[in-house]
Design a protein around this nucleic acid. Structure first.
Ligand SMILES: [Zn+2]
Ligand SMILES: [Zn+2]
Ligand SMILES: [Zn+2]
Ligand SMILES: [Zn+2]
Lengths: 142, 142
DNA sequence: TATATAACGTTACATTTTATCGAATATTAT
DNA sequence: ATAATATTCGATAAAATGTAACGTTATATA
């Protein structure tokens, strides 16, 4: 587990006057400890080791919190959550998802396709965020 | 409702030896009749007008069928389905989703970001399909 | 007609997510 | 320090979404 992430998270909370509570701390650690996207109920299972009898809302609230601030991302096609590997500042995320082994890597550089960019430039659409999920086979599985 | 779509769908089924059944026909019509992505259980509600007491699997099976052959797409961030507006031949889809009015438009041209393309060219990842969902405000709502 | 396959109907259940509401905790003002 | 305010939590319950299983019906084809 990446302890610098915890420090970063704590600093973030202090700086922005959010509470660094036990559920939040634990949930972030659980998700960051997973090398693959992890589902809410699996987060909850792990939470049981740390909190006394946690219920779904406990997991979902903390997930929502960290997701909101880009510490984690939701992989929509998997209903699962993954720690941000991109020092996420921008509002777009991109993932390569291996159908074979389930490995997910996040693009560190944020680009959107030209076709979308054009629409944005033409004021046809004002983009606030985006998410790209690419499915395929990773190099290890190939 | 777009009757040429139904013709296309029927032709497709005949050509590929799939059955153009009542559930499939109805589900495609229901989804195509919606000007916004429609949820599975809303499809089911509409189905009730056409079939006698349909159950979730009836809707989901037909949805899955048409999705598989790119007649419709699943918008993962909405758990909803939308008819393909792009004469879909390729394996990538792109959507602009208005957070205000819910309007969704599909990009007709398929491009993926350069950063992903590079990885593919370097054989770091073999992409089979992708889905990009851009959230923002459409020109009407702006 | 006999056989194989595709698709369906139905039941039942599993998974994922959210609403609500009162209690606890932390923050800020007095 | 105390009171007022806002944030977060705990717990219950339910809603929303999705699937496994199994026997039946329809279609293709030999
Ligand atoms: Zn990120
Ligand atoms: Zn792999
Ligand atoms: Zn399409
Ligand atoms: Zn709009």
């Amino acid at each position: 587990m990446n302890s610098s992430l915890e420090k970063k998270a704590l600093d973030f909370c202090i700086k922005n006057k959010h509470r660094y509570t036990k559920p939040r701390e634990s949930v972030l650690r659980i998700i960051a400890s997973s090398n693959k996207p992890i589902k809410a109920y699996d987060v909850l299972k792990h939470l049981k080791k740390v909190l006394k009898n946690p219920k779904p809302p406990t997991a979902y609230r903390a997930i929502e919190f960290w997701e909101k601030y880009n510490f984690i991302h939701r992989i929509d096609s998997l209903n699962a959550y993954f720690v941000c590997e991109a020092e996420h500042l921008h509002s777009g995320s991109q993932f390569l998802i291996c159908n074979q082994c389930g490995e997910v890597t996040e693009s560190h550089i944020c680009e959107i396709p030209k076709i979308i960019k054009k629409k944005i430039e033409k004021n046809i659409f004002s983009a606030k965020s985006w998410n790209l999920e690419v499915k395929g086979i990773c190099s290890k599985c190939f």
